[in-house]
Amino acid sequence: MGTFLDRRTIVLAGILGAVSVVAANSWMNAPTGFTLDSSGRVVAVDPVGVIFNKAMPLEAAHMLVAAYLVGGFMIASVYAGAMLRGRRDRYHRLGFVIAFTVAAVATPVQMGVGDALARWVYNDQPEKFAAIELVPQTSSDVPETLLGKLNSNGTVQGGIPIPGLASWLSDPATGKSTVVKGIDSVPAGDRPTVSEVNIVHLSWDIMVGLGTLLFLLSLWYGLTWALRRRMPTNRAFLTLAAASGLLSVIAMEAGWVVTEVGRQPWIVYGYMKVEDAATANTGVWITFIAVTVLYLALGVTAILVLRGMSRRFRRAGGFNDVESPYGPPASPAAEPQVEEATR
């Protein structure tokens, strides 16, 4: 019972915590559940309406799946790195398989959730969608432009256009004739700037591109299991798997850039602009620099300390006789590693 409470409540608290945090962000995208008086002060709040805003279900689902995806790939990439260096014993295989399987299952789910979320953005935040798809003017038969950029004169330069795909993806029922609203569909003062549009578009390409790559990697893994009843162990797969943790983090962060920069100039969509929400304190730069310097220093120190711990750990006999946090138990189970490492 104790263990049950420990573990299940951590999972539950993690999920509820993540959903709550994302609910706050999705409220910024689809603010509901409050009443303003004539001077713009909040006079009444309906917390249920705030939390269960229209953007929340899909945004929360997207982040939750992303968390499992990133967590899985991150853990798996550590074991993949160790396997590349020759530690292919049962302990490392298990560590890899458990984590990578979670991520591999999450990846196609994420593509489905992401597709649904993009359609929500198409309907409810047209200028964000226009930035994502690089659509300056409202039109039908809009191409899906890979890379490329928007010029300040409102034309799209470079990139690889796939004819009609953006329209088709926005609403498969109407296909290529689906009208996609352009950035010109909102008043000039409420538009994202050209560079913001380009950041959103590039981040979108990075997120979808890396997501697709991770999906193909998951497919490779899944097919190998299906056909050979074992995980792929060749260097190409392991190298990609070792990079998958970092790649998934980049994909996730790119996704956050899409949703945050894509909402510009608003901080609360349709109600409050970033410039009106920002502090008037001019010392913000000092704080920003101080925080950055402190965390850089702590980050570097953390790496140095961890390296020092790892050195001592090896000198003390490695897996042989020292228990490490989250590591394998010190005694019998550790034997295979030693064999492998000394081979």
């Binding site: 909040v42 006079v43 009444a44 709040v45 309906d46 917390p47």
Partner: peptide, 9 residues
């Protein structure tokens, strides 16, 4: 104080 809905929650 915030609106009563907020305080209640």
């Amino acid at each position: 104080a915030a609106p009563s809905g907020t305080l209640r929650v």
